[in-house]
Every structure is written in structure tokens, then in C-alpha cells.
Amino acid sequence: MSDTRQRRIDNLTDAARRKSQAKVKAAEAAIRRLIKRGDQVTFQAVQREAGVSQNFLYKNPDLRARIEHQRQTQRPTPRPVPAAVNTENNIVTALTAEVTRLKKQHRQEVTELRKALEQAHGENLALRRELQRRGGSDD
């Protein structure tokens, strides 16, 4: 291999490494901002805040573990109900708002799980193809 070609390969490798490091820093900063604001830390929220793909977040073991940890420990704080809530109308309004919030949270979590499942299916397919390419059986 020529020196010029090796230098180009090294430059591209370094550029890819720097780009990945920048994405990691952006995601870490996004997680800190979300926590500071009291927002839920989810893959989708970090992706939007940091401008990185969810695929990148799922594939990076450190970021994935940190986000999953935050999701587990960062339970939504129950909204205080005003003491004057003693009419049926106010109770119904408060419960309707809570149901709406929970539905939104559920949809968000289902979307994240679907994306993770798609990622897993893609990795499974790639592994099956690699296995077939190497001459293994795919039962």
C-alpha cells in the first residue's frame, strides 16, 4: 500500500473518530440540559436536543446505558392537585389532563421501542447475511 493511500486512510479514520467524539459530547451535553430543565431523558429527546441519530445513541453503549439509567431513575413527578379541588368538574379535568399526559408518554415510549426493535431486526439481518456469506447454515 502506498504512503499516500495510507495517509488518506489515516486521515479519514481520524476524521470519523473526531466526528464520533463530537456527537458523543453533543449527546452528553443534551442529557445534562434535559436533566437541568427537568425534562424526561429519552432517546428521542436526546436525539432532538443533540442533533444526532437515535441509531447513534442506541449503538453507543455508554450513551445508551446513561439514557436508560436516566429513564429508570427519572420518574415523572406527580403534579400537585390544588387543595380547592372538590367539585366533580375539577376532578374530571385533572384526571383527563393526567390521562392525556400518560397517553403522550406511552406513545413516545412505544415509538422508541419500535425504533429499537427495527434496529435489532437490522442487526439480526446483517448477522444472518454475514453467517450465510461465511458458509454457515441459517436454520
Rank of each mutant, 00 (worst) to 15 (best):
P61F: 00
H106Y: 14
L131Y: 09
A45R: 00
K59Y: 08
E130V: 05
Q74W: 06
S53C: 10
E118I: 12
R48L: 08
I9R: 10
S20G: 12
A120M: 11
E109L: 15
A97Y: 01
I67Y: 00
V85K: 00
R128V: 01
Q6V: 04
F56E: 03
N60W: 03
K25V: 06
E123Y: 05
G51W: 02
Y58S: 01
A16L: 12
A26G: 02
R75H: 11
L102N: 04
K19M: 13
R128A: 11
L57S: 03
L12A: 13
R5T: 09
V92I: 09
M1W: 09
R79L: 07
A22Y: 03
Y58A: 03
R75E: 14
V99L: 07
V110W: 05
N89C: 05
R114L: 13
Q70V: 05
R133S: 13
T87V: 07
G51D: 05
L63H: 00
R66Q: 09
A15W: 08
E112Q: 09
K36Q: 12
H121A: 15
Q6W: 11
Q72D: 12
G135P: 04
R107H: 13
E118K: 13
R134K: 13
P78N: 05
I91M: 05
R133L: 02
G136D: 12
D138R: 12
E130Q: 10
A94K: 02
Q70N: 09
Q70E: 15
V81P: 01
K36F: 13
D138W: 14
A50N: 02
K104F: 10
V92H: 06
T42K: 00
A30I: 01
Q132K: 15
E112N: 04
E98Q: 09
N60R: 07
R114K: 14
V46W: 01
G136V: 02
A94R: 03
G38C: 05
T77Y: 05
L113T: 03
L117P: 03
L113N: 08
R134W: 06
Q119A: 10
T77H: 08
A29E: 11
E109C: 07
E123T: 11
P82W: 04
Q40R: 10
L12H: 12
A27F: 00
R71S: 10
R66T: 14
R107P: 06
Q132G: 08
A15T: 15
K23L: 07
L113W: 08
T96I: 02
Q47P: 02
E109G: 04
I9S: 11
S137P: 04
D139C: 14
R37V: 06
K59N: 12
D39T: 07
T111F: 15
K23S: 09
